[in-house]
Design a binder for these strands. Sequence first.
RNA 1: GCGUCGGUAGCUCAAUUGGAUAGAGUUCCUGACUUCGAAUCAGGCGGUUGGGGGUUCGAGUCCCUCCCGACGCACCA
Length: 575
Amino acid sequence: MLPHRILEERLRAAVIHCIPDAEVDQIVVRSCPDVRFGDYQSTSLMALAKPRKINPRKLAEDVIRALDVPEWIESSEVAGPGFLNFRIGPEVICRTLESAIRGEHLFFETTKNPRTFVVDFSSPNVAKPMHVGHIRSTILGDSLARTLRILGHTVITDNHIGDWGTQFGKLLLGWKSGLDLQALRTDALGELERLYKQTNSRCDAEPALLEGARAELVKLQDGDPENLGIWQEMLELSRSQFDSIYQRLGVRFDHTLGESFYNSRLKPIVAEMKDRSLARVSEGAMVVFFDDHPELKAHPALVQKSDGAANYTTTDLATLQYRLETWHPDEVVYVTDGRQQLHFKQLFEIFRRWKSGSPVKLAHVWFGAILGEDGKPFKTRSGDTVKLADLLDEAEARALRMVAEKNSDLTDAEQKEVARMVGLGAVKYADLAPNRQSDYVFSWDKMLALNGNTAPYLQYAHARIRSIFRKQNLPDDLGVPPQGLSLSTPEEFALCKTLLNFGLVLEAVVSDYRPNYLCNYLYDLAGAFAQFYERCPVLKAEEPERSNRLAVCQLTGRVLKCGLELLGIESPERM
RNA sequence: GCGUCGGUAGCUCAAUUGGAUAGAGUUCCUGACUUCGAAUCAGGCGGUUGGGGGUUCGAGUCCCUCCCGACGCACCA
């Protein structure tokens, strides 16, 4: 077991000894924010003491007296009003590194309580090109799914694509009247988007056309073969374009069940809402009111429009119902932008009333907007939304220019491949590194910079490590140094202690659904490595130092690569 | 109007159940390359965390209030 886990376990036991009814899950050990205090600390006792009105300092002293201190703890002390600080000895650090070298772990452990998660993300709309607005959901959701999986949870990813709804009336009308077959062949989604925009503006000008669009929609919903056929074709065209984007991004879904998949469930749900008086008719629509809910009191939710059609709240309820029946998740995570907060509050509240016994946890993981450098929503120069495919192309092109300039040893094909990894990595990292809830400013120069908290900087650190091994044709797995691993310099210790924290960080990522913790950690790790690299020669060092340092490099490289992989970012061997 | 979320160094951003002296990058200044990759590293300048009040041993974080901004507020999703 990893040191912090053992410490945490023993600390919990000691707390239970002092306070039998304490909430042990709240007792946590984390790395010290300042090395002067120690390596690990716990602030949990102060939080525990407060509601119980006991002196936190005294509680800390009692707990530390009851603590079965692991033999590898060098010092454990109470500080200030009740901090517990622990310092670990070099032995346990080295033994932990050795077990990592042997492949027993990579500084994290899988969870003791595996849970099943459904992660709902990306969700593009059929007949619209994926644009920059989809990237954050896609990247965040993918990274969370990867991190949950590596920690041993069961994860089902489901792309809830928008393949049904009122936009298809206009699309059908446009398809029948103004389809450009040539354009459809070269850029299907672009052509569909053009048809939609064209019909939309024509409808604004001619109300009679709007009736036509509605009629097409009704025919589709009634199962008209021609309209269904066209709809199916639009769906397939869209899917193949989505797939090419996902392939580029390295994102995969276990399921892609669009809104239309749930059509048959809608009417029964509305009926049940009505029968159980969860919803009632208001202004011709079927509406759920939240009179006893202060926050939602002023925001009733429609489950059926006055024209009899269900809307997205109903579809989301049906989707949730299906997911619970099919996969029995412990938790369903929705990754969408922050503008949908009200919708999900309503949805979750309706669900609680509808399935009052369900233990499932529902989480809305929302994120802010991507802004242009002018602080306004990110658009092209002409004011259009930025298509995702174009964005990725530009990222690769810009990265290629940098790679060509910096490393001319690589062949053209190698440069292109490295540029692909660096460009896509930069875009993804720029999305993941800021706190997801804040808006962030999209800047090519910042995300592709080789200094600062960027993907290229982390990839560079990895490439430097790989370069050491390549230089002397050393194998990827050197094994534990014959005389056992030992460390001597402050830089070695600082780097290795950072390695030990990888697992703590991964746990924080999944508990708060925030991959940016991992970004910050990897940046720290790369920084610690850079300092080590400056001050501690590896290949030039004498044995046994040389073997020790090679081992440290190897583990650092592995953690960097693994961490980047959890962010969906590749690590080139050279760049 | 009501609600949600923001406001942290000139700029772009961090800061893990409230935790210890609020950290990075960038800009500007200074230093380190006969290099295990300088695509790097070290040092310096830079702060009343929007204003004010409160709770607390302790507040960027919680509560109240005001200012500024983004977004949302029943028949789009």
